[in-house]
């Protein structure tokens, strides 16, 4: 095995983990954010404070909780997921879902009120109104997705705790950078950092192209 194939494998694991944690977090967080944003109910402020607090959850704390849940004697130990990419995705979702809920909720509260009033006046069904809300807020939602992806790809504390930074298995770009830095291999760590930045750049370019196409 040479360095190039290991690097490709690390990039592959990083992308797989970031993709799934972003998709899962958005699938769970966006509907919840829209629901909280457009509804008026008792306890809404408390929920908003809670998601706001969880946005600042330290990654190592999230990692520790997931570690304790999936360790051999933990409640989910029988799944045997510790030190796998799957458990890394779970830890990341724990960090990203509150961010997605909070951002989507704020966006909905700002943009949705008048749109919902318009839709209600036209006697749209709840489903048609929800789909309209999503399509009318495509650009803002895309920003939420990019924020989620950014948080996922740059995260190191939780994934190193639950993934173990195992070569050829759970090593991702950020944990590899940490390892190479600790070994004193600064030039390689820096190269990895540049690749990580490039991945983020490409994802952002693709997303901007999508938005531009929509505007036209």
């Amino acid at each position: 095995m040479n360095m190039d194939s290991e690097l490709l494998q690390i990039i592959g694991v990083t992308l797989r983990m970031s993709f799934f944690s972003t998709v899962i977090s958005c699938l769970i967080g966006m509907p919840l954010g829209v629901l909280i944003g457009k509804s008026v109910f008792k306890g809404k402020r408390t929920i908003k404070k809670l998601t706001g607090t969880l946005m600042g959850l330290p990654p190592v704390v999230a990692g520790l909780i997931v570690y304790m849940l999936f360790t051999k004697y933990g409640p989910f130990g029988s799944f045997g997921l510790l030190f796998t990419v799957e458990v890394m995705v779970i830890a990341q979702c724990m960090l990203i879902i509150p961010v997605v809920i909070n951002l989507t909720e704020s966006m909905t509260e700002i943009n949705a009120k008048k749109l919902i009033e318009t839709a209600k006046g036209l006697n749209f069904s709840k489903l048609k109104t929800s789909l309209l809300l999503l399509s009318e807020n495509k650009q803002s939602l895309l920003s939420v997705v990019l924020t989620a992806f950014g948080r996922s790809i740059a995260e190191v504390g939780a994934v190193s705790l639950v993934g173990g930074n195992i070569q050829w298995k759970t090593r991702v770009m950020t944990t590899a950078i940490m390892l190479e830095t600790n070994k004193g291999n600064f030039s390689f760590a820096l190269a990895l950092g540049i690749i990580l930045l490039l991945i983020s750049f490409v994802v952002n370019i693709l997303a901007s192209a999508l938005v531009r196409e929509d505007e036209e």
Partner: peptide, 11 residues
Amino acid sequence: YYMPQQSIPFS
């Protein structure tokens, strides 16, 4: 059917 003062045009 109701037309609010500020009816939002769809994209």
